[in-house]
Structures are given as structure tokens and as C-alpha cells.
Design a protein around this nucleic acid. Structure first.
Length: 490
RNA sequence: CGGGGUAUAGCGCAGUUGGCUAGCGUAUCUGCUUUGGGAGCAGAGGGUCGCAGGUUCGAGUCCUGCUACCCCGACCA
């Protein structure tokens, strides 16, 4: 087979770029830092949206839409929030263009300056809480459980397709609650939804935890996150859920009258996942033959490739393919029959491997003679010939097995790459090979900064579901209540 | 914003001390043969050589300025 991909071993970043490109998911646009998501990549995003949206609805949330532009003054209302985003905001200053005097194109009309500049949203807390002020008066208005699917802009210095782009797509949930307990419960509920989604649909094992002070979302009291490990040993934050306390309620003066008749500030949460998950999906599972998609997220689950020589064979084989497609669609699968005569079977095999389609079925004249089909699975690249009778159940089981296998493989990799470590000297050496490191930390920002400075590793999270094993900070020797996860991160 | 690099066909690249009609691979189109792992042969189309100046009989090649992109740092979901 002709080599079209850089291998992971040769150059991991190039391998990633090659997959995005060859699987036809996205490309760089002529706008600096902004990508074009191509149909196949967008179809993956649509599947993610569909599944997540169902999960949000099931947990009582409704969708709404808030403006792309946010008045500059809104941003200064919550101090730490400004600090967090000020350095990466796109700002709209004018609202009109005019013809250039030299006749060459258009220029900004300086007379059309905005009274107040507008910020292209890097996230929507401010505009949303400004709006919630009008929506919330009484405890009867709570909880308010809203989600929006939107694009946001963060003016990044260096960008990579899906992982970090100036504009990206995401969903952001923004909820308002009467009590602190209820808001914390919501924050945790949503990080669990994300974890469920990542593990059971994307097949990516994640660690749920909270962020340290320095990694926390600008304006949050607590940031919960799910952290995943990529195949190069680097960590990737796959989703976050924030307990915002009353910070935004106070900044935007959102109060409600409680059952007891008291005027109180509202408690808030926000949570989001982005198109970055597509990057996670690629880096968690794919191999040197291309993308590997878990069946539950794959835009096409089964592809059928007819093989023939003569016109007569073509008709017979394609008809058989159509029959098979209908049969599989009847049990709810998404199936593509590639009956294009413009490409050869070998070309198609390679193509669908690059695109990560979980199951490929080939039917040729020999199969029709023998009443068989050839079935190949993408995760293991195994190919077997089976009877064409009753294949629905076989395919259904196979997809299920592939889904599980992809997850298990990723989980095994993570287990192999997770190390308990107590010596900072050993840590400095071991971090070079990547992976998660469970280590004791004294809880101070200074120690965290020192580690980051010296090793480029950061605290990915303080995991929730682990035992509170006491110990001593690997750097300072001061007491520590539990181990935290260190890694180099995307 | 610092340091380095690149800019020639859709994509990837070559182009010598300045030289005549700017080339190769791949992709595209046509035809024939092919089709169970990215087919072969024959032919065809496709270029303001990043932009603007300059030197020269002559510039893809030399000089000056600009712009864009890539890599490495600081910053980040």
C-alpha cells in the first residue's frame, strides 16, 4: 500500500495533521487561526451534538441562543474573568466600510466608530448573566437550566486543527440555582455527563477531578474537569464544569426572593465541551493507517465495497450490496454502499481505513457463489469471510465489540502510562516519556509553578474518585492529603 | 512579542556561476486495457514564479522594501 500518512513514531504532530487532512475532516482556512470543518469532520461533530443534546435534555436543560457580541463594559464586571480572557479577545470597533479613495478596495469608515466596542464572545457568562437578571426574581424562577450551541473566539497565538483554533464550536451550559448545594450538585452532575459521554460514546477513558487554583476557570470557585491521555503521553482536557458561586450573580446583580422572603444572590454553574473533542478522538484511538472511530460516533458505521470485473458481475454484486445495505439499515445502522465505478476496490479499502469506518464489507463474485461476505474491522484490521445468511446480528455484535475494544485498548494504554511517583528526581526523568503521574503535592501555587517551570508538567486535576492517601509533597516534603495527577498537556 | 525558515501548476517539490520554450512527482481530463489492498499505457489541459520597486541586453535566479505562512519559545479549551 502506498504510504500516505506520516507514522506516529516518525512525527506525532505530523501524523495528527495528516489524519485530519487525509480523512478529510478539516483544513486551514485563509483566515489566520481559523479552520474549515469539512463535511466528514462536521458529521462527527453533529453526532456528538446529537448525543450530548439528548443527555442535556434528559437532565432538564433547554437550548437558547445569546448574542455573539458582548459590550466591552460587561467584561470588566467580574474581575478575575477579565484577567482570564483579556489577552485573547477579538474586538469590534467600527460598523461600516467605504470605498478606498485610491479606488483599490474598501477601508474602514473612521466616522462609523462604535460608541462602545463589542467583544466577540470568548465565552458567554457575562451576556448571559446580564440577561438572567431580568429572568430571575423569585425562587419560583429557579433553577434556570439553559444550554447554548455556539461558536466562540479566542485569539490564540498558535493554533492546531481542532485542538486549538481562534474560532471553535462548542456548547456552554449556564445554570442558576437557589442554593449553593444545588449548584454544586449541578456542576458535578454535568461533569459526570461528560465523563459518561467520553467513555461510553467516544471510547476515551477519563479522569474526573478538580483544577488547582492556577488552572481554574477565570471567575469560578471550583472547576471540575475530565482529563484524557493521548497516545503520545500528553494529557488533554476534554471537558470542564464550573461552580461559579455567586460571583456572576453579584457582578450582574442577579437576586431572587427566597421562600422565606429574603433577597438573595443566585448560585451559578457553567460547563462546556468543544470541537476539541474531535482532536481527542483522533489522538486517543487512531493508528498509522488512519483514523479509528468508535461505532457510536462514526458518521458511517458500515461501508460496503462491491468487487467485480464484468458488467454482468457488477449488476449482481451491486444488487447484493443494496440488499445488504437495506437489511443493515433496518436494524438502525448507518451504511454506505460505495458503488462508484470511478475507483477501484483497493483504493476504497485504503480510503475507508483512513476515514476510520468501523466495519467494511466486501462482496465479490466469489462471495455470491459461496454465499459469503468478507468482513473487516477497522480497530484490529482483521478480515474474515463469513456466511451471508443472517449477518445483521453478526454486524451488530461486531460493532458492539469494536466499541468495547477501542475503549479497553485506550484504558489499557492509560493504565500502562500512569505511574505513582514519590521522588521529584525520578519524576523529572520519567516525565520525558509522557503519561500521567500520581504524586503528592503540598497544595501551594509556588510548588506547582516550580514544577511547571522545571518540567513543563502541570497538575491536570485533583482526582475525585481516589482514596485519600496521605503523604508528603515530592518537591517540598510538606504534608499532602492525596495524590494529584501531573502530566504535560495540550 | 523574540529566534529561525519558507513562498514556483490543486497538492508536494526541483530549478546550477543570471541565459533562450520554467520542469518533475502527484492530482485532474480523454481513450484503451484493468478491478479480491491506493492499476498500466498513450495523450491533453493547467503558471501574473507571494507583492512592489531596483540592477541588467536579459531576473524564478542578484539587491531593497513589504506581506503571508510554517517551525521553536512565552500564552491557552
Amino acid at each position: 500500500m502506498a504510504k500516505v500518512l506520516t507514522t506516529k513514531e516518525e512525527n506525532y504532530s505530523q501524523w495528527y495533521n495528516d489524519i485530519v487532512n487525509k480523512a478529510d475532516m478539516a483544513e486551514n482556512s485563509s483566515v489566520r487561526g481559523c479552520m474549515v470543518i469539512k463535511p466528514y469532520g462536521y458529521a462527527i461533530w453533529e453526532n456528538m451534538q446529537h448525543i450530548l443534546d439528548g443527555m442535556f435534555k434528559k437532565t432538564g436543560h433547554s437550548n437558547a441562543y445569546f448574542p455573539l457580541f458582548i459590550p466591552k463594559s460587561f467584561f470588566s464586571k467580574e474581575a478575575s474573568h477579565v484577567d482570564g480572557f483579556a489577552k485573547e479577545c477579538a474586538v469590534v470597533t467600527h460598523y461600516r466600510l467605504k470605498n478606498s479613495p485610491d479606488g483599490k478596495g474598501v477601508i474602514v469608515d473612521e466616522t462609523a466608530k462604535l460608541e462602545e466596542e463589542l467583544i466577540v464572545r470568548p465565552t458567554s457568562e457575562t451576556i448571559i448573566w446580564n440577561t438572567y437578571k431580568n429572568w430571575i426574581q423569585s425562587y419560583r424562577d429557579l433553577p434556570l437550566l439553559i444550554n447554548q450551541w455556539a461558536n466562540v473566539v479566542r485569539w490564540e497565538m498558535r493554533t492546531r486543527l481542532f485542538l486549538r483554533t481562534a474560532e471553535f464550536l462548542w456548547q456552554e451550559g449556564h445554570t442558576a440555582h437557589a442554593t449553593k448545594e444545588e449548584a454544586i450538585e449541578e456542576t458535578q452532575k454535568m461533569i459526570n455527563v461528560y465523563s459518561d459521554f467520553a467513555e461510553n460514546f467516544l471510547g476515551i477513558p477519563v479522569i474526573i477531578g478538580t483544577k488547582s487554583d492556577s488552572e481554574r476557570f477565570a471567575g469560578a470557585i471550583d472547576t471540575y474537569c475530565i482529563e484524557a491521555l493521548m497516545q503520545d503521553g500528553k494529557a488533554l482536557q476534554a471537558g470542564t464544569s464550573h461552580f461559579l458561586g455567586q460571583n456572576f450573580a453579584k457582578a450582574f446583580d442577579v437576586k431572587f426572593t427566597s421562600k422565606e422572603g429574603q433577597l438573595e444572590y443566585v448560585w451559578a454553574t457553567s460547563w462546556g465541551v468543544s470541537t476539541r473533542l474531535i482532536g481527542a478522538l483522533i489522538m486517543a484511538h487512531s493508528d498509522n493507517n488512519g483514523l479509528v472511530l468508535p461505532p457510536k460516533i462514526a458518521p458511517i458505521q458500515v461501508v460496503i465495497v462491491p468487487i467485480y470485473k464484468t458488467d454482468e458481475e457488477q449488476i449482481r454484486v451491486v444488487n447484493k450490496g443494496k440488499e445488504l445495505k437495506e437489511q443493515l439499515e433496518k436494524i438502525g445502522l448507518t451504511v454506505k454502499l460505495d458503488d462508484r465505478d470511478t475507483h477501484k476496490p483497493g483504493w476504497k479499502f485504503a480510503e475507508y481505513e483512513l476515514k476510520g469506518i468501523p466495519v467494511r464489507i466486501a462482496i465479490g463474485p466469489r462471495d455470491i457463489e459461496n454465499k459469503t461476505i468478507e468482513i473487516a474491522r477497522r480497530d484490529t484490521l482483521e478480515k474474515i469471510s463469513i456466511s451471508s445468511e443472517n449477518i445483521s446480528d453478526y454486524v451488530l455484535n461486531l460493532l458492539d465489540e469494536i466499541q468495547k475494544n477501542i475503549f479497553n485498548k485506550a484504558k489499557l494504554f492509560r493504565e500502562k502510562s500512569t505511574h505513582r511517583i514519590d521522588s521529584y528526581d525520578e519524576f523529572k526523568v520519567a516525565i520525558e516519556n509522557g503519561g500521567f503521574f500520581e504524586a503528592h503535592w503540598d497544595g501551594t501555587a509556588e510548588t506547582e509553578a516550580k514544577i511547571k517551570e522545571e518540567t513543563k508538567a502541570t497538575i491536570r486535576c485533583i482526582p475525585l474518585n481516589t482514596s485519600n492517601e496521605e503523604g508528603f509533597c515530592m518537591v517540598t516534603g510538606k504534608p499532602s492529603k492525596k495524590r494529584v495527577i501531573f502530566a504535560r498537556a495540550y
